[in-house]
């Protein structure tokens, strides 16, 4: 079996996988990082979004072997110890989640947006969320949370 070495949340990991193993399976089943969720399995819902070399990607649509040598950031890598990442804090403050299933993907996607666009408008946030599906909230509080989170990230720079 091929062995894949990559950096996940700042730590190097070497994992034996099959060629067909998806990155999300490597994260969840081999490394026990179950914060990254599998929602639709058809590459549409965005619950599995993580960052690979700084860009948001669907980890259910990337082979683990394709991620060899990359730097992966998952929801578990955002907080600094007990201190939530500003985007996570904004989701909590703005009631940006209900059941929470889509939340890891939403937060990772939102952090990528805030890196590219420090002050996104409501419209830009809604367009950005095309690839993240939430079946509880109706999105309003997610959009509010992302706006607040992006401003908090910009303020802390």
């Amino acid at each position: 079996m091929p062995s894949v070495t990559l950096t996940v949340n700042g730590k190097q990991a070497t994992v034996e996988v099959e060629n067909r193993t998806l990155l999300v399976q490597l994260l969840r089943e081999h490394l026990g990082l179950t914060g990254t969720h599998v929602g639709c399995d058809t590459s549409q819902c965005g619950a599995c979004v993580v960052h690979v070399d700084g860009a948001s990607v669907k980890s259910c649509t990337l082979l683990a072997v394709q991620a060899a040598g990359t730097n992966v950031l998952t929801i578990e890598g955002l907080a600094k110890g007990d201190e939530l990442h500003p985007m996570q804090a904004a989701f909590r403050e703005n009631h940006g989640l209900q059941c929470g299933f889509c939340t890891p993907g939403m937060v990772m996607s939102a952090v990528d947006l805030a890196h590219r666009n420090a002050h996104p408008t409501e419209h830009e946030i809604r367009e950005w969320l095309e690839g993240n599906i939430c079946r509880c909230t109706g999105y309003h509080n997610i959009v509010k949370a992302i706006k607040a989170g992006a401003e908090a990230m910009a303020g802390s720079r």
Binding site: S43, G46, A55, S56, V57, L62, E130, G131
Partner: peptide, 9 residues
Amino acid sequence: IGDPAVRNR
């Protein structure tokens, strides 16, 4: 095209 995560790959 697609969504941001798709455009990143």
